[in-house]
């Protein structure tokens, strides 16, 4: 409870300042609406915005889950042998550098409009940190423990499941936390191109529409919701990390 107080206070003070300054300086509404207008827009457009948030959330979560699964699997594969790493790793880096906005139209060609291409866009931007962190985690396994498993004749599978993956877990979670925020960003950018308009518009498409119509207050409302989505996903991953690591990893232990 007490931990939530400082950010809440900062939020309220920040909004109060924003509200006061926009009135005082008579900032035009299409440039920067005050928080009260944004709240009002949120209320009057609750239906399309909540529907949009649901769609974007769906796509982001699907993309994120896919990125977590594929990312960890790819990380395990890459860390399994040097030659695999040399063959595959450069291309995963390429994945990171490819401009999403430029390939979004390609996703439409492949997957049509709707949730699917958007989820794929979320996947593309969020998979990289998962791969990199998984590889780093698997690489950092304590050598004496590797020796111990070898000495007791552990199979490859036992080594992976009982030693390497648990050892890499803190790093994997760090990757997933980064991926959570990126997945929402990827989904919103994907929607700029690949979302349906109208009834089934996601937050990205709504934001684009509102911007064209110069409804800056609604635009802010859509952007705010998208940020909240990212935050929710991040908090979810954080809770999972705490649950998995609290007994044994310093990153999730209470400090006195």
């Amino acid at each position: 409870m007490r931990k939530g107080l400082p950010p809440l206070a900062a939020f309220l003070v920040g909004n109060a300042l924003w509200e006061a300054l926009t009135h005082l300086l008579q900032v035009p509404l299409y440039l920067l609406p005050p928080p009260s207008r944004i709240a009002a827009a949120l209320a009057t457009h609750a239906a399309p915005l909540s529907r949009g948030a649901l769609l974007t959330g769906q796509a982001a979560v699907s993309g994120f889950v896919l990125a977590a699964t594929v990312g960890v699997a790819a990380g395990v594969l890459i860390a399994s042998a040097r030659w695999v790493e040399r063959a595959v790793y450069p291309f995963t880096v390429l994945l990171q550098t490819v401009p999403l906005v430029a390939i979004a139209p390609l996703l439409v060609v492949w997957f049509g409009y709707g949730v699917r291409p958007v989820a794929v866009a979320a996947f593309i931007v969020s998979v990289f940190p998962v791969i990199v962190n998984t590889v780093t985690g698997l690489r950092s396994v304590d050598p004496p423990l590797e020796d111990l498993f070898r000495l007791y004749g552990a199979s490859c599978w036992a080594r992976l499941v009982k030693l390497r993956l648990p050892w890499a877990l803190p790093a994997i979670f760090a990757g997933l936390k980064v991926a959570a925020g990126l997945a929402v960003i990827g989904a919103v950018v994907g929607e700029f191109v690949a979302s349906y308009a109208g009834e089934d518009a996601g937050l990205g498409m709504l934001a684009l529409t509102f911007a064209r119509e110069s409804h800056t207050d609604r635009l802010f409302a859509a952007v705010g919701l998208a940020s909240l989505l990212g935050l929710a996903l991040f908090v979810g991953v954080g809770a999972a990390a705490r649950l998995a690591l609290r007994h044994w990893h310093a990153s999730e232990q209470e400090r006195p």
Binding site: D142, P144, L145, D147, L148, L151, K162, L163, P166, L169, H247, W248, H249
Partner: peptide, 14 residues
């Protein structure tokens, strides 16, 4: 049946 004890405990922390 060969066992090895290292300089540090090297237990699985989880």
């Amino acid at each position: 049946r060969v066992a090895y004890v290292f300089q540090d405990a090297h237990l699985l922390p989880w």
